[in-house]
């Protein structure tokens, strides 16, 4: 193998748009790991690439739709789930995956998220949570921990953060999991499980943001942050997500919710066929 075409021999190379590589993400960013895990999952499931759609919103992780070699769409800020709902309802055969960030999904897109979870729309949402708005320079967002320093909270954040897993579970998601970017194998297994499940699945990946958030909060390099993840994360499957707050000393990870519920698309199609049958009977 020569050096120039070595990338072609990577077993995930066929899922990437080679001409767009290398990606724009900083060194040590968890977004690349999320992309890697997602590609591993679709490689393992051997899904038809024509049957999978990736929708992303605005933010660093929003660029992911340009890197995956499937039909993908980079939507406006916060509207990734709204767009994905439309795709799924128009063509129920497609597997629709939303990959977006915490600022996009929970700040401007918060309402779309809770209502898609409440309706149980059959889409998979993977959220890269880096605790701030990375792309625009590190402003505080809905997941920034209390007392954390960002560019717009120079004296410490005074707002309480969202517990994303708890929000998703309370809104009615059928599958809720949280992993850090160090748990690559479990994250991949979770993505595989979510892709096979019917209903609204939510996976949160806690990601380092070594250039902005971690630098402002003096957490060291990306390797230091990953070591911190290893130190403080505890796997608790089935634990109550309300108690799974992310604190400095403890990050509870695992699969929190795994239930079965009829999805919105299925109920909608059943309702349509029932009403159409009824109308036909009335006409005849």
């Amino acid at each position: 193998m020569s050096e120039s075409n070595l990338m072609m021999h990577h077993y995930l190379a066929k899922y990437l748009r080679q001409e767009r590589m290398p990606h724009i993400w900083c060194e040590g960013c968890g977004n690349g790991i999320l992309l890697n895990c997602f590609l591993q999952a679709i490689n393992e499931l051997n899904v038809d690439l024509n049957k999978i759609v990736v929708v992303s919103g605005i933010g660093c992780i929003g660029r992911v739709s340009g890197y995956i070699n499937v039909d993908s769409f980079h939507t406006t800020h916060g509207r990734a789930i709204a767009f994905a709902t439309g795709v799924k309802l128009a063509n129920p055969e497609l597997e629709v995956v939303v990959i977006s960030g915490d600022g996009d999904l929970f700040a401007i897109g918060g309402n779309h998220f809770i209502h898609a979870a409440r309706r149980n729309v059959d889409i998979k949402v993977i959220c890269a949570n880096n605790f701030n708005y990375g792309m625009t320079g590190g402003q505080y967002g809905p997941t920034t921990p209390l007392d954390a320093w960002t560019t717009t909270t120079p004296y410490g954040n005074i707002e309480h953060p969202f517990n994303l897993a708890h929000l998703a579970a309370a809104a009615g998601a059928v599958y809720v999991a949280r992993w850090t970017s160090l748990h690559v194998r479990r994250l991949k297994a979770s993505i595989i499980k979510a892709l096979q499940k019917e209903g609204f699945s939510f996976i949160e990946m806690i990601s380092p943001c070594p250039e902005i958030f971690d630098r402002y909060n003096k957490m060291g390099t990306a390797v230091d942050v990953m070591k911190w993840f290893r130190l403080v994360s505890q796997v608790r499957h089935g634990c109550d997500p309300a108690k799974a707050e992310i604190t400095e000393n403890e990050i509870l990870v695992g699969e929190f919710v795994d239930i079965e519920k009829p999805s919105y698309g299925r109920l909608l199609r059943e309702m349509t066929s029932r009403v159409q049958d009824k109308l036909k009977r009335e006409e005849s």
């Binding site: 990577h10 890697n36 690559v184």
Partner: peptide, 12 residues
């Protein structure tokens, strides 16, 4: 594990 954790697909 190196292949899985590499964010840049630079090792396999």
């Amino acid at each position: 594990f190196c292949t899985a954790i590499c964010p840049d697909f630079a090792i396999f």
